[in-house]
Design a binder for these strands. Structure first.
Length: 417
RNA sequence: GUGAUUGUAGCUCAGUUGGUUAGAGCGCCUGGUUGUGGCCCAGGAGGCCGGGGGUUCAAAUCCCCUCAUUCACCCCA
């Protein structure tokens, strides 16, 4: 038997209705903030990702689905969407008018060659937004607010909002130097992973879970990133926080919060939920003021986030949040061959009135058909055998009350409206 | 990439120290009602025991390999 590849999976009805709900709320809410939907290709030149996400990141180093096309170009399935959106903006010259704001949201599959586990698969879906053309801290605050409101709209309470600031390029570099000086003599006390991080991406030390490492980092002399911020970055960050308070978004400042992509600057944030296992980040994002320029565009302030839809669905299921109920089902029983033919027409009439009508296609016993009607949760059953046909009637049974009544054929659709 | 875990019916799982024809519950189908569902009763269908190799008179059971699942690490949504 051929099965879906590792880390990929099918979404079947009725679960798809929950996905449809998420998609519908996405379009609704993001549009109300003035965002328009963008759709970009699912694969791009590999270079786009290596340059934006960072050569040394895990995503680029070991998680990309990379292949050569027939002309020998290196292509990669997109592991995230921000770089793709930036590319599209540059290609369509959208960012050349200074001061013009562009807001996009997207929804679609991303690909990372990871080992699957709870809340992580190789093909997964993200919904996200990107805002271009502003350096304002209020843009950051609005984007974070939008993310929180999105979860609330889906009935999700108790999400944790963590925020931090990396500051501008100089602030981060200063902090990294300080951190190196502090950690260097203590490397012997740290776990092997932390020793590796020290070389590769020292900021990642901050969210190590090993207790002995945490002890080192909890020392009073441990440098804190928000203390290394330049005046401009500090002011930016504080404005973001105060604006969040203005709109009553609860958050926690988390100086240990780090993101895995190289392009972030200034504000970064993450939303987690404690009910879905180790991979508890529902979404995350931040500002990326240098990325557009690095990819060859004009210097452009930008901020955005991405949400993992699979993880979101996990939480929704856990909280037993359902999609809206579907419409009443009308099942048309076929007593004989003639009825199968008639029901095609009757069902057509019902559906033209916006009703949901289901018929059988082969001659089964009435008992079997009733059982099927019951199994699919039909609210009404329409029956028409010899007796009814003789008088241009149908019999309608209400499956909840068991009550039956006779209805003239011409009034059939009207009966359900 | 690392560690652990589990693969037996559509689903959830039993299956003794290797020993006849591999079981249960739920679900499904049929009948009990010449044209009536749910509840109940009776019957039935459905398994190369993940795949391959080995040990043995004999393997779902023991050994090796492989694929897959789940969870965690790394990392991230």
């Amino acid at each position: 038997m051929i099965k879906a590849l590792r880390g990929t999976y099918d979404i079947l009805p009725p679960e798809t209705t929950l996905w449809q709900k998420v998609e519908q709320k996405t379009r609704e809410l993001f549009a109300s903030y003035g965002y328009g939907e963008i759709r970009t290709p699912i694969f791009e030149r590999t270079e786009l990702f290596t340059r934006s996400i960072g050569e040394a990141t895990d995503i680029v180093e070991k998680e990309m689905y990379t292949f050569q096309d027939r002309k020998g170009r290196s292509c990669s399935l997109r592991p995230e969407e921000t770089a793709c959106v930036v590319r599209a903006c540059l290609e369509h010259k959208l960012l050349n008018q200074q001061g013009k704001i562009h807001k996009f949201f997207y929804i679609g599959p991303m690909f990372r060659y990871d080992r699957p586990q709870a809340g992580r698969q190789r093909q997964f879906n993200q919904v996200g937004v990107e805002l271009f053309g502003s350096y304002s801290p209020f843009a950051d605050a609005e984007v974070i607010t939008m993310m929180v409101r999105f979860f609330e709209l889906l009935g999700l309470k108790n999400v944790s909002v963590n925020v931090n600031s990396l500051g501008d390029k100089e602030s981060v570099e200063n902090y990294k130097d300080e951190l190196k000086k502090f950690i260097q003599p203590k490397l012997g006390d740290l776990c092997p992973d932390c020793n590796r991080r020290f070389e590769k991406n020292i900021l990642r030390l901050l969210d190590c879970k090993v207790p002995s490492c945490k002890e080192v980092f909890n020392s009073p002399e441990m440098p804190v990133i928000t203390n290394s911020l330049s005046n401009v970055s500090r002011e930016h960050y504080e404005t973001v926080l105060s604006a969040l308070k203005d709109v009553n978004v609860n958050f926690v400042e988390e100086p240990g919060l780090v993101r895995g992509l190289d392009y972030y600057t200034e504000t970064i944030f993450e939303i987690t939920h404690n009910s879905i296992g180790a991979q508890d980040a529902l979404g995350g994002g931040g500002r990326y003021n240098n990325l557009v320029k690095e990819i060859g565009g004009p210097a452009t302030g930008a901020v955005g986030f991405a949400i993992g839809v699979e993880r979101l669905i996990l939480v929704l299921k856990q909280l037993d949040i359902q999609a809206e109920d579907c419409k009443d089902i009308i099942y048309l029983v076929s007593f004989d061959e003639e009825a199968i033919r008639e029901n095609l027409v009757f069902a057509d009439e019902l559906r033209k009135k916006g009703l949901t009508a289901i018929t059988g296609y082969q001659k089964l016993s009435v008992k079997a058909q009733m059982r099927q009607a019951n199994n699919i949760g039909a609210k009404f059953v329409v029956m028409r055998g010899e007796n009814e046909r003789a008088q241009e009637f149908v019999k309608v049974k209400n499956m909840e009350s068991g009550e039956e009544k006779v209805v003239a054929v011409k009034d059939l659709a009207q009966n359900f409206v």
